[in-house]
Every structure is written in structure tokens, then in C-alpha cells.
Write a protein that binds this DNA or RNA. Structure first.
Lengths: 211, 211
DNA sequence: GCGTTAATGGAACTGGAGACCCGTTTGAAC
DNA sequence: GTTCAAACGGGTCTCCAGTTCCATTAACGC
């Protein structure tokens, strides 16, 4: 849905945009599912258009026509993933919410299947500009779901008024993603714990207050 | 040097290990330089063994034989980069040193050439295990150069005794790399500033004290 | 210097990724 | 339910990444 409008804007006649009914939608679903499976199993470098077409039960011509490249597939997958939002926690305290957020991120990246997908997606984003934009969009929507928690915490006086919610949430995620994508370290539970605590400590000091 | 020993351990007769004199070394230098150029110009996904061989003025058979794959090239490049260490700053205060460190990271990632290389390297590490290990090793040596700054700061009482230096340094780098690799945001100077300040605030609170 | 052989490099071969053509299916409008 | 074009899909072709083979070059030990 989101994708169709977006593509309509850029190119007048991209396949899959004018007749999104029945078959076309089913094809997209099958292809994106197959892409997710392939990424989870063997990573981005092994992503192969022919194999995707085969395992999705779709003609390979169709895959090439609608997605052109592996990064195109990943980009569309990200648009799809951004639509399926999961709600933020509400533990009553900002400290608790941030800990829940950090633990959610950790659980996602630690999960064998999801971890592989995110690794692949990060690789794809590093290779392709369009893909990078899609990934950025994905995180924008994800973080947006958690901003109310910070706002409530600020209202309760747990962090200074004027604290930038997104900045604080980024500070929570950053250490986890840094280890995951850059240094490839183990993500133990205490890492998430510390990420949340450190971010909150900095926030209390007013580091994330918008000037 | 480091590489030769490493390879000698695993395989008894890997090309380039038994006669590392003159030509072999020159070939490696030329190939790694060409790889760096290629990554800076067009990124990891466009890394092409044939083109590397051509622009290095080396037979493509040699490149395939000694490095096998694009990730092999990047892996060796990382070993090479880890050897060229640059010394840490010493501003007199931990706050100053951390700010210098954050700014150094920011400058590196922002530089058009180096930024592209790091992006490529992160992508390669996400695709290949051996490459990931090489990247982890690179950062281990880099962070090790800055640990004395933290130790000195702790001795001066700027952070609690027992503060884990590496943990603190990771906290400084994390927000920068997170934006760089995951959300692909602009890295303005104030981001580095805030990364250093936030990490120090958390450290002062004792978040990074080893239990 | 001289011989040995590790390492390089040119050339020819192969397989599979990706492009193209064109007939078939099917969603949308009436 | 009929029509029309959008989207799909099978088959084929092309090109290039990656391999193999063998001749040539030049390190290393004497």
C-alpha cells in the first residue's frame, strides 16, 4: 500500500502498481516471504533472484521486473516490515520502559532468525542508497512508537523537561547495534541493561535536552 | 607479517606465505591499495576481483588464488589497516580526551573516502564471518590505544575507580557508528560532542564500573 | 652466480546470473 | 460476461565472474 503510492509518484508505470488486486499482491507476499527466509538462512551476499523466484513459486522474470536487484528486494521488505508495528511497553517508570526497549532490541538481534535478517539488512543498506533510506524509515517509525514513553517520563520528572525523546532512544539502541554490526560482540542481557541505564544517566544530566 | 603467520598456522602452503620477499609483498601492497580505492569509489557491492587485478596491474589468477573472494580482500585489508595505528590524544582531562576521540571517529566516518571504506567494511563483515573477526580485531587494537586515557582520568578522579575503559570508549563510539551504519543520519559535530558528554555522564554515575 | 621451485600471469573454458522475447493468464471496467 | 490491457511466466540468449592449465618469472638457499 505504502509502496504502491511511493512508486506511483516516481515512475508512472511500475509493474505491480496499477493492478494490485489478487494475483499481484499474492506474488509480492510470496516473494517477500521467500526473501525473508533466504536472508535468515544464508545472509545478504547469498541472496539470489533466481532462487527467490523458485522458492516463491513465481517466474523469475517477474522478480527481475518488479525488484530488479537483491537490494531492491531488501528495500521492499523493509517497507513491508515498517508497516507491521509492535507497540511500546508501559511499565510505569521511564527506567523500566527504557530497559524494556533495550531488552526488546537485544532479543531481536539475538534471535537467530531475526538477527540474521537485520544483519543482512544492514549490509544491504551499506551497499545501496535506496535501501539505506528504507532502513532509516523503518527505524523512524519504530522509534516514533516509543517517544510517548519518554514524554510521560519527562512529565513525571524522571528526566529534565525538553529532553529529546528520539535522542534518548537512539542512545539506548546505539550500544546494542554498535556491538551487533560493528564489533560483532556477544549481546548478553547485562549489555542491554547497561545501555538503558547509561542512556538514562546521561538524560538525567540534561545531555539530550534540546537547546 | 601478521597475515603470513596467521595463514601459515592454518594452511601449510598458502600462496604468498613461503616467499614473502620482494614481488609477493609488492603484489599484496598493490592489490590492497587497489581494493581501498575501489571501496572508496564504489562500495563493497561493486567490488570486483577482475577489476582489482587490472587496476593493481596484477594477473587476476593471482588475486583469486591469494584472496579467493571480495570478503577475503576486505579481510586482509583490515589486517593491514590494523597495523597502521595512530596514537591517542592527551588533552589533560578525560572529558577532553573523550571529545577528541569522538571527534576523530566522526571525522573518519564523515570523510568521503574513509567513510565509504568503513561502510564497505561493515557490509563485508555482515556477509562473512572471517571478515567480521578481522573487523572486531581492528577495533580491539584501536580501542586499546585509548584505554590509557581512561586509566589516567580514573587516577585523577574524573570517573569512579574500577571504570571499564573499553566499555566507556565503546559508549563514545556507539552513537556515531549507530547513526553511520544503521540509521544513516548526518554526523554533525554536535553529535560527537554529545556522544562524549553522554558517555562521561554515565561513567561518572558508575554505570561502567566492573562489578 | 646457479639451480630449485614458489609464485605469478596469460589464455582458454565453464556455469550461472541477469536480460529479452513473446505467448498466456487474470484483474478491472463496462 | 465480455473486452482490454496489465502483469505473469516459460524459454532462450548473452556476458562475465570464477576456474583450470601451463608457461614464465623471480625469491631463497647454496
Amino acid at each position: 500500500m505504502e509502496l504502491e503510492t511511493r512508486l506511483n509518484e516516481s515512475r508512472p508505470a511500475t509493474p505491480g502498481t496499477l493492478r494490485p488486486g489478487g494475483r499481484t499482491a499474492k506474488v509480492r507476499r510470496a516473494v517477500l516471504d521467500a526473501t525473508l527466509d533466504a536472508l535468515a538462512e544464508s545472509g545478504f551476499h547469498a541472496l539470489n533472484m533466481d532462487r527467490i523466484a523458485a522458492s516463491a513459486g513465481v517466474g523469475k522474470t517477474t522478480v527481475y521486473r518488479r525488484w530488479t536487484s537483491p537490494t531492491g528486494l531488501v528495500g521492499d521488505l523493509l517497507h513491508d516490515m515498517a508497516e507491521q508495528s509492535l507497540p511500546a511497553a508501559d511499565t510505569g517508570t521511564l527506567a523500566g520502559d527504557l530497559r524494556a526497549n533495550a531488552e526488546l532490541v537485544r532479543a531481536t538481534l539475538t534471535d537467530p532468525r531475526m538477527g540474521a535478517v537485520f544483519r543482512a539488512v544492514i549490509a544491504a543498506a551499506a551497499c545501496d542508497e535506496e535501501c539505506a533510506r528504507a532502513l532509516a524509515g523503518f527505524y523512524r517509525t519504530r522509534l516514533a512508537e516509543w517517544t510517548p514513553a519518554v514524554a510521560k517520563g519527562a512529565a513525571r520528572g524522571e528526566v529534565p523537561a525538553g529532553t529529546d525523546p528520539v535522542e534518548l532512544l537512539r542512545a539506548v539502541s546505539a550500544p546494542l547495534y554498535y556491538r551487533f554490526a560493528v564489533t560483532h560482540e556477544e549481546l548478553a542481557a547485562d549489555v542491554a541493561e547497561r545501555a538503558a541505564t547509561a542512556a538514562l544517566a546521561a538524560a538525567r544530566d540534561g545531555v539530550f535536552v534540546r537547546e
